[in-house]
Every structure is written in structure tokens, then in C-alpha cells.
Amino acid sequence: MMPSEIHINHLPGLTWQTTAFESSLNPEKADIWRIKITDFIPYLAILQPLLLPQEIEKVFRYKQESDQHRSLIGKAVLRILLSNYLNVDPKAVQFKSAKNKKPELENNFGRNLHFNISHSGNWVLIAIAATEVGIDVEEMNASFTYQNLLSFSFNLQEIDFIEKSDLPYQTFYQLWTRKESLLKATGKGLVDELSLVPSLTGVHQNPTEIIGSAESWQVLSFPVDENYVGSVAFMPVKTVLAFFDFKL
């Protein structure tokens, strides 16, 4: 049996489609949705009724209004998107926690559908696919003291790559999102041995015990806008990605 691999690459530029999407997914296709928080604040009164009472209660546990908006909009849009793929009413979409609290559908209505969500600052990213998928987005904060995380989170080759890059803090965030998206896809969650999770562009042998999966994976990082970077992890390796801007 051939050892599994992790293929890592970067999309330097991409087109975010604004046209209607096809709701049918197959094992060689994954959809990435981008939601800009500030665009949806005028629609909070429309979106909030899509959440269950316990979800609304959780949203308003956040002390900062910006965190409340981000959580509410993300949950509501996720339910809208999944309801379109499943061809059901949004309120029929229910969630449960799987391994390491990774959210999944309570009822997939006979469809093989997987999703993952991430948010940071003014953006939410949602990935929807026919196989397991993980996504992460980070705002690239130039003032963040990322150096404190290097020895814990990256191996020596990765640290050298970050420190020698033209914009080290941006490279840090790119590699970080690659690791996190992979661990979210496998349901492993952040691990103590984060430095053993590969993040450099290229093909790597899969550290199966670390990431919690013996499958081969593809990890792609991409620009969300000039201040944000995202990464998505999926299988099989030759999966075709489509990128969409969500609009009401």
C-alpha cells in the first residue's frame, strides 16, 4: 500500500464568482464561499430568525458587538447555503458535534455533504464538499508578535522560510492557515505536535498519527483580500474548487 501524501500549494490569484451556484456536488468538486460581514449588518433582522433559540443565546454571549455580528451572520449564511444544497427549508438544517467538536449535519437528507466554516475580522469563509473538508481564514496583522509561536508551531525549515521571506508576518499567516485547515478537515483539531504538520509548498509524506487521517490530502492557500489569507484542505487531491461571493 502506497503511503499517503499531503500536497500543498498556493493560488496567487482567483476569481470570486457572483453568479448563482450549482447545488449538486460530486467527489471531485468543492465550493468555497466568501461572506463580508459589513455587507450583511443591514440584514441582521432577516438573518436572526434563521437561528435556533440556543444558537441566538450563544451569539449574544459575546461581549463585543462585532463578535456577535460575525457569529450570527456566519451561522445564518451557513444554514442558507446548506439548505440550498440539500433542497430543504433553512430551519430544517440542524447540526451536531462530531470528533473534537467539528460540526456536521444532524440529517443530510440522503446527500453526501460536508462543510466547514471559519471567520476572522470582516470575513467568513465556508467550504462545502462531497468529502471531508477544512477551511481557515486569518486577518494578517502586522503588529501581531507571531515570533512567540514559531518554535511551538513550526519546524526549523518552516521557521527559516518565514524569516527569510519578503513579508514574514504574511508568510506566517499563510503557513498557519494551511496547518489549521488540514487539522480541521480531519477533525483532529489543534495538536501539541503542530510543528510536525507540514505547511510548505510541495508534496509531503502524511504524518498520519499527528493529523488523524491516513488519506492523501490537498491543501491550497489563497488571498481573500489584500489583508486576509485563507487555506482549504480537501480530498481527493485532484478536486476542482469554485469560489463564490455570497449575496442575499
Rank of each mutant, 00 (worst) to 15 (best):
M2L: 12
E5D: 10
I8T: 11
I8E: 06
L11W: 11
L11T: 10
L11N: 08
L14R: 02
T15I: 14
T15N: 12
T18L: 01
T18V: 04
T19G: 04
F21E: 05
F21I: 01
S23K: 13
L25Q: 00
N26G: 02
N26S: 13
K29T: 11
D31W: 04
D31L: 09
I32H: 03
W33A: 03
R34L: 08
I35C: 09
I37R: 13
F40K: 07
F40L: 05
I46L: 13
P49R: 11
L50E: 02
L51Y: 00
L51H: 07
L52M: 15
P53I: 13
Q54I: 10
I56N: 09
F60I: 02
R70A: 10
L72G: 00
I73P: 02
V77Y: 04
V77R: 04
L78Q: 06
Y85A: 08
Y85Q: 06
L86Q: 11
N87Y: 09
N87P: 01
P90S: 12
P90I: 03
Q94Y: 04
F95G: 06
S97K: 15
E104P: 00
E104G: 08
N108T: 14
F109V: 03
R111A: 12
H119V: 09
H119S: 11
H119R: 06
G121D: 03
W123Q: 09
T131Y: 08
E132M: 11
E132K: 13
I135L: 06
E138A: 14
E139H: 15
E139L: 11
E139I: 08
M140T: 10
T145S: 12
L149C: 14
L150F: 08
S153E: 07
L156D: 15
L156N: 14
F161R: 09
F161T: 10
I162Y: 06
K164E: 13
S165F: 05
S165W: 04
S165Q: 11
Y169H: 15
Y169R: 05
Q174N: 15
L175T: 00
K179S: 10
K179D: 12
E180Q: 03
L183P: 05
K184D: 07
K184N: 00
A185H: 02
G187Y: 13
L190C: 04
V191E: 13
V191K: 00
E193K: 15
L194K: 01
S195K: 15
S195Q: 14
L196F: 12
V197R: 05
S199T: 05
H204Q: 03
Q205H: 14
N206I: 05
N206D: 12
T208G: 07
T208H: 11
I211E: 05
G212Y: 09
S213F: 08
S213Q: 05
S216P: 01
S216W: 08
Q218C: 14
S221C: 11
F222N: 00
F222H: 04
V224E: 02
E226T: 12
E226M: 04
E226A: 13
N227A: 00
Y228A: 04
K238D: 15
T239K: 09
V240D: 12
A242M: 09
A242Y: 05
F243W: 12
F243S: 04
D245G: 01
K247C: 03
